[in-house]
Write a protein that binds this DNA or RNA. Sequence first.
DNA 1: ATGGCATGACAATCATGA
Length: 260
Amino acid sequence: MALKVATWNVNSLNVRLGHLLQWLKGEPIDIVCLQETKLIDENFPVAALTAAGYRSLFSGQKTYNGVAILLRQDTVHEVANVQTQLPGIDDEQRRLIAATIDGIRVVCAYVPNGQAIGTEKYSYKLKWIAALHDWLHSELKQYGRLLAAGDFNIAPEPRDVHDPEAWAGQVLFSEPERAAFRALLNLGLKDSFRLFDQPGRMFTWWDYRNLAFRRKQGLRIDHILISDELAARCSGCTIDAGLRKLEQPSDHAPVIATLQ
DNA sequence: ATGGCATGACAATCATGA
């Protein structure tokens, strides 16, 4: 039985709940990782998602950040070891939620944006990824089947950027960020999207400004990383850009990995 | 051209995103 796992930065779950429900109705994903819910936990739409057949795990805050994992009740059964703190960093921002779901360690991450090179937020981004790296290192010793999905806010390679020359040295594509991403892969993780031949100009984020989506001016910054054991079971990874075409869309599109 | 566009908090702009 194939298992579909997705990650999507919704840029406000309040605004995007309709899109989410519509999407899941047409494509029943088994495990959905969400970022930028921008909701305090009391306001998480548990009832609407329960009615749609999903159990919700979430960690939110007011205005910014916020992450969640949705589990399709028909196909997902055991949930254990839910965790919302990233060890090794004193972070009040709600950017991580992890759970062991039917034996797979699922990590949902919203990596800091970084703002611009040389800023405090850029340092925080690199520090946050370093903490994620060290924690995933220990998790991988414990879990052979591990999946780390989310908005990494890093375009790993030139082909993940619509205009690599213009983006050279910019935040999201700077060498220290890309090195940090490679270090995650070097832990024994695969970028599931790159396990397969893909068309060119495949992105997951497009700026709201300048008709960037229509002009295909995007970045591939949302990723699903999987351990070797899961990579052996992975039969596909796609980006669902259709949601970016709807009225009042998120600026990110979901990434979907299929595991056999 | 350091903005454009979107979201939330808050009540006219401002912080943040990427």
